[in-house]
């Protein structure tokens, strides 16, 4: 038997053993859960009261993401060398992705030079927001644990982008940006006219104009919901699979049973979704802005 096979079998045996043990200890009994509400994991509790600008969990995550975005990028930009180390190589790959794929791929070079800071920041900001969402941080102020007498918020996974306000405001910025570009490039009337495909007149033009107008508005919603729903659903599934379900249903063994799925989804979210959603958001923003300037 090969070593890998032994390890796999060992892990599987351990998993099965614990599962059986949990059933034997607790039985397949259900007790009613009344206090745990899964949506409360995403509730914003004001920690520092500053009126409308009160600092809550999402704000802390945003600040953290901002500090990390600026900090890491700034730190690396001061240490750019002719012979890059691994970190620099990675940053260069990301930079090339932002500059060549996201920006230059979707708009003329002159425009890309102008819009790159916006699109690059958009990508990095969302990316960092998504990524730190997979770090367990002591931010769940609803559940606390006591360590050496101090009440510390429970460690939790949370992401600013799992809150609809964050994607919404970023999508709004993109929405304003591409409409502004369109109006500037073609004039207010020209931009409105450009919504109607050329060669269509009369009632058809009116109907198509309304449809295109709605579809332009839908960009705002689709940008918002795509990012928010992906991150939110990812977090909720991880939450369910790594204990949430067991707590809600009051089935201890189920928590253990679902744990592997939780781990797999966690890795999937961290490795793919976090990056992919940031990339898609920034790329779509570039497509909308580039498209508004050079309309059909």
């Amino acid at each position: 038997m090969s070593k890998t096979k032994k390890i796999v079998l060992g892990v599987f045996a351990f998993y099965a053993l614990v599962f059986v043990a949990l059933i034997l200890i607790y039985g397949i009994t259900q007790h009613k859960n009344s206090e745990f509400q899964i949506q409360n994991e995403f509730k914003l509790v004001n920690w520092v009261s500053l009126g409308v600008l009160s600092i809550n969990r999402a704000v802390v995550y945003l600040i953290l993401a901002t500090i990390l975005t600026i900090g890491t990028m700034f730190w690396i930009s001061r240490r750019m060398q002719a012979r890059p180390n691994r970190v620099q190589t990675a940053v260069e790959v990301i930079y090339s992705l932002m500059r060549d794929n996201i920006s230059r791929g979707n708009m003329p070079d002159s425009m890309a030079a102008k819009w790159f800071p916006f699109l690059g920041t958009l990508f990095l900001f969302i990316w960092y927001c998504n990524l730190i969402g997979y770090l367990p941080l002591p931010t769940n102020s609803e559940e606390k644990f006591t360590l050496f007498g101090a009440h510390i918020p429970a460690f939790a996974l949370y992401a600013a982008t799992a809150n609809i306000s964050v994607p919404l405001v970023l999508a709004l910025v993109v929405f304003v940006a591409f409409n502004w570009v369109g109006v500037r490039a073609q004039g207010p009337l020209g931009y409105l006219k450009s919504l109607v495909p050329s060669g269509v007149g009369g009632v058809g033009a009116f109907v198509l104009g309304i449809l295109e107008g709605v579809s332009t508005l839908m960009r705002l919603l689709s940008l918002t919901i795509r990012l928010w729903a992906n991150i939110f659903s990812g977090h909720i599934i991880i939450l369910f699979m790594t204990g949430g379900l067991a707590v809600i249903l009051g089935l201890q063994a189920l928590g253990w049973f679902a744990l592997p799925a939780g781990i797999i989804i966690y890795l999937f979210e961290l490795g793919l979704v976090a990056t992919l959603q940031a990339f898609i958001f920034a790329t779509l923003a570039a497509i909308y802005i580039g498209g508004a300037a050079s309309h059909h």
Partner: peptide, 9 residues
Amino acid sequence: PNVGLMIWT
């Protein structure tokens, strides 16, 4: 939408 959070963002 949480207006404060939007402004922060």
